[in-house]
């Protein structure tokens, strides 16, 4: 364990320094992302206002606000753009530099990205959780924070991130087939966004569709952690959905190793 840490620490550190050098850019990017959250807030207010208030598909207005903020936080925490990095490295051949090193290929990406995530996680999580609790307390008049839910949320987020990471590794290997990764990535993000409940809570969908989406790996990314934090899932459901998350982590981890074995044989690096 200690040896592992020593080997991979430089990758964490590199990720950290990259983010640190683009601080201002990061702030502008987050502000841009937050704007769509603001638009969504106004639309939902109008929807609840036009619908006469009350509960819609299991969500009150205050729960919907909490949902929007928590989805925003969760998406940022579990975000992974490793598909892009992998794709680029395959295309320009710099992947060979990683293959030469006596370290696990996937792990170098994982630790690099985690390093970049460290500041974001610290800067966003605390304030946003506090904001959510203040919003809930003010709007509903009761203090609803639960340490248990928070701990389960953290575990669920870690699982969600791992699913997303390995899923994106698999997707990055698509660079062997698709040349225009930017477009393919965008397509992937739209579909994942919708399937994971980031656009609209899955309970708003027709029941049969909701059931299908809940089983697919994408609900495990955003919907499951957020629903757990909000206390929308009861005991047995929590066990089931977190079990499903573990299943998808193992599935995509295995698939990425398999794809790696297959694609390495097809890899040709020119010059280099």
């Amino acid at each position: 364990m200690k040896k592992r840490l020593r080997i991979y620490w430089p990758f964490v550190n590199a990720g950290l320094q990259e983010v640190a050098s683009y601080r201002v850019n990061w702030i502008f990017f987050m502000l841009g992302e937050a704007l769509s959250c603001v638009v969504m807030y106004f639309i939902w207010s109008a929807v609840y206002h036009s619908g006469g208030g009350g509960v819609m598909n299991g969500f009150t207005m205050s729960q919907m606000i909490v949902y929007l903020v928590m989805i925003f936080l969760t998406r940022t925490l579990i975000d992974s753009d490793v598909s892009f990095t992998v794709g680029e490295e395959i295309r320009d051949g710099s992947i060979i530099m990683r293959m030469l090193k006596p370290v696990s290929y996937n792990a170098t990406f994982l630790f690099h990205e985690l390093g970049g995530k460290l500041p974001t996680t610290i800067a966003l999580s605390g304030p946003m959780i506090i904001a959510v609790e203040i919003i809930r307390t003010v709007l509903d008049g009761t203090f609803q924070f639960s340490v248990g839910s928070l701990l389960l949320y953290i575990v669920s987020c870690v699982l969600a991130y791992l699913i997303n990471f390995y899923f994106n590794i698999c997707f990055g290997f698509a660079a062997f087939v698709i040349k225009y990764l930017w477009g393919a990535n965008m397509m992937k993000n739209v579909l994942v966004g919708f399937f994971s409940g980031a656009v609209i809570p899955l309970s708003f969908l027709p029941e049969w569709l909701e059931r299908v989406f809940l089983f697919l790996p994408f609900a495990s990314l955003n919907y499951t952690p957020v629903m757990i934090y909000m206390g929308q899932y009861a005991g047995a459901e929590i066990v089931y959905f977190m079990g499903l998350q573990v299943f998808w982590v193992l599935f995509f981890c295995g698939l990425s190793k398999l794809l790696w074995k297959v694609s390495v044989k097809r890899l040709t690096v020119q010059g280099g």
């Binding site: 040349k179 965008m186 656009v199």
Partner: peptide, 20 residues
């Protein structure tokens, strides 16, 4: 092939909003 992917991508973004 690339620009088909790009056009479909932007169409999908709009479709997802319309579905919403």
């Amino acid at each position: 092939g690339d620009f088909v992917v790009g056009i479909i991508g932007f169409l999908l973004i709009q479709l997802s909003n319309l579905l919403f």
